[in-house]
């Protein structure tokens, strides 16, 4: 039979340990010289050659260019979001990036608790004095890609394969569709979300299905799963059909140079550096940060290896549209997800 446990003893032991370690920690002041500390949280691996990798590059860029101390943590569950924000704030980090909309709730809570710390949430939805949504207007680049697609498609059918159906992803597709139709009003558009950013076989299946339905130009919004997507287009080409693909998020032109017409690119590192600089200069906060064509945060990059696939006159029209967007004359469709009560438009 069991005897009463020694849990209490053990807890006491842990407590003693805690106190000792605590004292040790006091010897290591984290904030002593005013070297600014910047931290990054990602909810996926920074080895993904995509969304998370871009953020990590940005963090390194901040460290290299501005001389700030940087640190990164990959979090697994939202319970860890709060914990990580609090830990970094407690350890004297002044600027903390949460790279994804999922960090918004935790950042808002931490923002109230640590008013001196600035929290940046990529794709966030609720700005406050020290919580700054960083809104990548990838839809602007996606719109330009759509114009290119409209010019390239012979069948007049284009396809879009997404991962999880979140507003930012949906937004790029809405814009892409608008771009296609701006060039070719009668074009038909297919849309599939696989529900997984990282599953190449699901992406490949979805792309193959769209190709079977007659689409000959495809764009994706995936993470590591994009390899499967490109493979489907490659196999279609090998099977004799004139199919093309567009890259997204990173400049993927060199990932599959044989099938890619061009990429809608976010320059996450540049935007991170820009944000950190603004923070240093005290101009960050209160409103969401616009990260679009105008500030060089997104761009449409044709694939140099496939020069000529996009007709020159189309390229000229694309360039006109780019100028119009930068000048504020052309409003690209997007999905609005800033919360209504703090309905601040992106800073002009």
């Amino acid at each position: 039979m069991n005897h009463p446990p020694t849990t209490a003893t053990l807890l006491a032991l842990l407590a003693t340990l805690a106190c000792n370690v605590d004292r040790k920690q006091d010897d290591v002041p984290a904030t002593d010289p005013p070297t600014p500390h910047v931290a990054l949280l990602t909810s996926g691996p920074v080895s993904d050659a995509g969304w998370h990798a871009g953020a990590y590059e940005g963090l390194q860029l901040i460290g290299d260019s501005l001389g700030f101390e940087v640190s990164h943590q990959q979090t697994r569950t939202p319970a860890e979001f709060d914990e990580a924000f609090i830990s970094y704030a407690e350890d004297g980090y002044g600027l903390i990036f949460g790279h994804g909309f999922e960090y918004q709730d935790a950042a808002s809570r931490a923002g109230e608790q640590y008013p001196d710390v600035t929290f940046v949430v990529s794709g966030g939805s609720r700005p406050s004095a020290n919580v700054v949504p960083l809104l990548f207007h990838l839809n602007e680049a996606s719109y330009l890609a759509g114009m290119a697609a409209g010019a390239v498609t012979a069948a007049g059918i284009v396809g879009m394969v997404g991962g999880v159906e979140i507003p930012t992803a949906k937004g790029t597709f809405v814009a892409f569709e608008a771009g296609v139709k701006a060039v070719r009003a009668d074009a038909a558009v297919l849309e599939t979300f696989t529900g997984d950013w990282y599953d190449p076989s699901a992406a490949k299946e979805a792309a193959a299905a769209q190709l079977r339905q007659g689409a000959d130009v495809l764009i994706h919004n995936l993470d590591a799963a994009s390899f499967g997507f490109f493979q489907a287009v490659r196999e279609a080409r090998e099977g004799g059909s004139e199919a093309w693909a567009f890259g997204m998020n990173r400049d993927q032109n060199d990932v599959a140079p044989d099938v890619i017409v061009g990429s809608a690119v976010i320059n996450i590192p540049a935007m991170f550096l820009r944000t950190a600089t603004a923070w240093r200069d005290g101009t960050l906060g209160g409103v969401a940060e616009y990260a679009g064509l105008r500030v060089g945060a997104v761009e449409f990059v044709p694939n140099p290896a496939q020069e000529g696939v996009i007709p020159p006159e189309a390229l000229a029209r694309i360039d006109e549209a780019r100028q119009a967007i930068i000048a504020g004359e052309l409003e690209v469709p997007r999905i609005e997800y800033l919360e209504p009560e703090d309905d601040d438009p992106p800073s002009p």
Partner: peptide, 22 residues
């Protein structure tokens, strides 16, 4: 390992708010 211990037991708050919550 120092980081591990600090993270789990470094302060009372870490023990209660991090370790026990997890």
């Amino acid at each position: 390992f120092a980081a591990l211990l600090r993270g789990a037991f470094g302060t009372w708050d870490r023990f209660f708010s991090f370790t026990l919550v997890r």
